[in-house]
């Protein structure tokens, strides 16, 4: 199938989806209380974007997501590299890390509330916790993807340790590292949302949970649209960088 045909079909499906969203509640086939029509959601979206409290909530959520990301990615990356490179550290901690990785992180949320309260710190701590394991796993995999031969060749040409790191490790790991950024943002964002919806006084997650409880479905869907756009934008940005860095991948 040609690329043009694929794109056309995608557009058609999107149009059908959006059309159904508008048409089904309007005709009463789907209960409009549960699924408000698209036009109403867009109208509400305009309203809430203009509201001071929603903007503030967006700022809080963005800050939580960014701070957790800035903590979890370098920290998890360092632990992951250590686990892959350092024989003893790896032997001791890798099994434990794998076990903990398999546990759903949300069951620890009550502990985080007891330890950190329901404010900013708790959101950051919980999101960091729910993100860091995937970063550790991915960073380990990235280090292991560097073939020993690559290093040997560089050594035979007299490369220093710093040169091996910069010229071999970094470019060799780059595709997996970017993939890690992308996936860790998904975990991170999910962590902040769960924490905000579970117990919070502010944040977009908190507002969405509130709207849901109060049956304010147009607002809820507008909030969902905002979050979806934010998440997809970040995802696409990293994917664009990935594509640029991985031309050499066959």
């Amino acid at each position: 199938m040609s690329t043009a045909a694929v794109i056309l079909i995608r557009i058609a499906l999107l149009a059908a989806f959006l059309g159904a969203w508008e048409f089904l509640p309007r005709t009463g086939i789907v209960n409009p209380m549960l699924l408000p029509p698209l036009s109403l959601v867009i109208e509400t979206l305009g309203d809430i974007l203009g509201r001071g409290d929603f903007r503030e909530a967006m700022l809080v959520t963005t800050a939580e997501v960014l701070v957790a990301f800035i903590i979890a990615v370098p920290l998890g990356g360092a632990i992951g590299v250590l686990a892959a490179e350092h024989a003893y550290f790896g032997a001791i901690f890798r099994p434990m890390l794998f076990y903990v990785f398999s546990i759903p992180k949300s069951i620890f949320l009550p502990m985080f509330i007891l330890a950190f309260g329901i404010g900013f710190e708790q959101k950051v701590a919980y999101a960091t916790f729910s993100t860091i394991f995937i970063v550790i796993m991915s960073a380990s995999a990235a280090v292991e993807s560097v073939k020993a031969d690559y290093v040997l060749v560089a050594q035979s040409y007299g490369a220093t340790r710093a040169q091996i790191l910069r010229r071999i490790y970094i470019p060799s790991m780059m595709p997996i590292l970017l993939e890690t950024l992308r996936i860790s943002m998904i975990f991170n964002f999910t962590g902040v949302m769960i924490a905000e919806m579970y117990a919070s006084r502010t944040g977009v997650g908190h507002m969405i949970a509130n709207w849901g409880e109060n049956f304010m479905l147009p607002q809820l869907f507008a909030g969902v649209v905002v979050l979806a756009v934010a998440a997809m934008s970040f995802n696409e940005l990293v994917r664009y960088m990935e594509a640029r860095c991985s031309t050499w991948r066959s």
Binding site: K147, D149, Y150, L152, V153, S156, I168, P171, S172, M174, W248, R249, S250
Partner: peptide, 11 residues
């Protein structure tokens, strides 16, 4: 030194 196959850097 010329090594066995696949010693070129793919990037």
């Amino acid at each position: 030194v010329v090594f066995q196959e696949a010693s070129l850097y793919p990037w």
